[in-house]
Structure formats: structure tokens, C-alpha cells
Design a protein around this nucleic acid. Structure first.
Lengths: 192, 192
DNA sequence: CCTCCTATACGACAATTGATGCTTAGTAAT
DNA sequence: ATTACTAAGCATCAATTGTCGTATAGGAGG
């Protein structure tokens, strides 16, 4: 049923692609005006000029739409910038900067209570990049690649999120460098 | 209104304390039987033998109840075990073990899609412990304590969460040791 | 004990969610 | 062009959420 169609990201039916795009665009637009919690499914459907039942054909609820939208757009940002975890130093900074920029781009009010639940979609993307990079460079013996990638992804996201909700925050580039400096030791392992 | 009473954790009115405890106990009990998403506010109120309106007097929604419950119970676990971030080596492992144990304790089914949104309540507790420990030991010059504490807290939580949702997982103690080995370099800084 | 204040219960209402059957519109293949 | 399949629209219903006014119960203080 609905959850299945939701993960059918490989569809080519133009009607489906069009509806999903319209729903995502509608949500993105509404997010510039109101907080996520205050947006109703009917509002999203109205904004997308689609029937509410159509919304439920594609997404279980608005959180699922937010997840799908975030993954699509964040991956788009990563692809546009050609970011990959190929080289420890600059790549980690670029990833962190990507997260900071995405957080800035998607929400209008970085108030503490209004932060979107984006970890469910952003972290897996970061995680995937870390895992790919680690596997390509061959992990050190005994290192659990999946665990390290996950841990580092959460660390990066948590740091970027804190930056985003901090009033009068430093420039994103500066923060990304800090995150890189801080998180790099995770990959280098214990110095003992 | 409701959000305000929700954060009024310093009340002494026994009626309020009793109602909140009953609601938390009800949710904890229901979580051993069904997934969070499948539990309705009416069910929680029924289980607590309280009126639904009483639920809303204390919590904005069931997510808020889950947050409050988790923070209370996780802090309780930390206090019972006398865990504090006083000594880098054993303390970090104890914190990680606490998270693993709490995740195990609170939910009946560690299925991928059924994971509770606990980061909002667990991470701040860990973060607070890290911050306290770092401030007590005097941070190295130039280190942003809040940022480091947050980053490390997210890293620990992300790792523990991955462990929890992994089928046939290793013993918690073992995982806690791994997390400690992995995350410790964050505190020691870049080896360059 | 009584009095006052406030938490809780109750019933009710509006809004929203989640689901469903039927009809219409859109797409791909022939 | 026609045909078959399926996405989307529509109206509707039941369940749940969020809210509110009124009455009752519970706790604290004198």
C-alpha cells in the first residue's frame, strides 16, 4: 500500500513523478512561511493543487514527505557540488558545509523548538558517503566500517545542527572547518 | 498554557506529580505491547485511568510525553549507576552502556522502522555530562566545549542506536567499549 | 473543622487524519 | 486512432486530535 509506493523511487510514471514533485515543492514553500508542526496535510495538498487523497497515495504522513523531500534535495546539493568522501581533509569539510547550507536553506526560523526532524534523512546520506569512502580506501584492520561511518555521520550532523540553532552564528565555512578538525580524529583512530 | 505547565518540572502539587507519573507509566507499559506510532492519546489516558483532557493539561502531544518520560527515566538510570564524565576512559564507556541499556529497556521491538525518536531527550543528557566533565577538567585552549560536548553526544547516541537496531547484536558491554575506543579521539583532538 | 484555590473529570464541538469506493483523466502500447 | 491500465479527483465516513466551559474532587492553610 502507501508505504510501498513511498519507497518506489524508481517509478517512471510521469503522473507519479509530477505529483511527488508538486507535493515536495508545496511543502518547501509552506516551510518558508510556517513551522512544520503548524502545516496540515490539507494545506500541503491545497498548495500543490492536488487532492488530499493523492497525498496519502504517496506518503504515509507529512513527516514521510519531509523525509523524502530532504533526502532528494540534500542529495541534489551533494551531487551539484560533486562532494564525495575521497580525501579525508577537504571532503569532510565539504560534507559539513553541505549540511550547514542545507539546514540554512530549508527552514525559515532556526528557533530552538522549531527545528525540523531531519536527522532521519540527512544522516543516512552522510553515512553512505563515509562508508563508500572508507571502503574505497580500505579500512584499517579490525575497524567496523559501518559503525565508524554512522558514528561520524551523527557527529557531523549534531555539530552542524548546534551551529544552526545558535544565535549570531559564525559563517558556515568557518563552522565546517571546525567540524572537520574535530571529527577527523574519529577516522584516524585512538592515538594510544 | 500546556507547553508552560509541561516544563514546570518543579511543581510540588501531588495531584500533578501523580498524573504525570501515571501517564508516563501508562506509556511505558503500552510501549511493551505496541509501537509508538500505533498508540493513541486516548489509549494512554485510558491506561493511566485519567481523562484525555488531563493528558493535554500536561503534555502537548504524545511525543512530548515520550520526551519527558525518556529524560526522567534515562536520568534516573544515570543517577542510579552514579555515572559522570569525570575520567575519560571508564566514564565514556559507562555512558555508552547506559544509552545501550536504556534503548534496550524502553522498547519491545528494535525493528528498523519502529525506532523511537529518543535523540531529543537522550542526547541533551549525555551532552550535559560531557560539558560538565570538560569544564571541570579545564578544556584545552581554543576548544569550544559546548560544540565538542554536543558532537560527542551525537556520536555516542548514533553508535548506540545503530547497535540497537542491528540484528543479532553483540553484548552491550562490548559495544560500549567499542564506542569508547572510537569516540575518545574526539576529546583528545587531532593528532596532527 | 472550614475555606479557598486549583487539578481533574466530563461532555461537546470543530478540525484533521486515515481510509475507501466510484468516476475521470493521463499514459503507454498497439 | 483505440485500448487497457493506473494515477488522481471526489465525496464520504469513522476515528482521533485539540480545545473549551462547567462541575466536582483534592490539597493546603488557617
Amino acid at each position: 500500500m502507501t508505504p510501498e509506493t513511498q519507497s518506489a523511487g524508481d517509478t517512471t510514471d510521469p503522473r507519479i513523478l509530477r505529483s511527488r514533485r508538486m507535493l515536495m515543492d508545496a511543502l518547501a514553500n509552506l516551510l518558508t512561511k510556517k513551522e512544520f508542526e503548524q502545516i496540515s496535510v490539507q494545506e500541503i495538498a491545497d498548495e500543490a493543487t492536488l487532492n488530499r487523497a493523492t497525498f496519502y497515495l504517496h506518503y504515509q504522513d507529512k513527516a514521510a514527505l519531509l523525509q523524502a523531500m530532504t533526502e532528494t534535495r540534500f542529495r541534489g546539493l551533494i551531487d551539484r557540488r560533486g562532494i564525495s568522501f575521497t580525501n579525508c581533509e577537504g571532503a569532510l569539510r565539504a560534507i559539513a558545509l553541505g549540511v550547514c547550507d542545507y539546514l540554512t536553506e530549508v527552514t525559515n526560523c532556526p528557533v530552538k523548538g522549531a527545528l525540523l526532524p531531519l536527522e532521519g534523512s540527512i544522516i543516512p546520506v552522510i553515512e553512505g558517503m563515509f562508508k563508500e569512502g572508507l571502503e574505497r580506501h580500505g579500512p584499517a584492520p579490525g575497524v567496523d566500517v559501518a559503525l565508524l561511518a554512522t558514528t561520524a555521520a551523527w557527529a557531523v550532523f549534531g555539530a552542524a545542527r548546534l551551529w544552526f540553532q545558535t544565535p549570531g552564528r559564525t559563517p558556515a565555512e568557518e563552522m565546517a572547518a571546525k567540524i572537520e578538525a574535530m571529527v577527523t580524529p574519529l577516522f584516524l583512530g585512538a592515538p594510544q
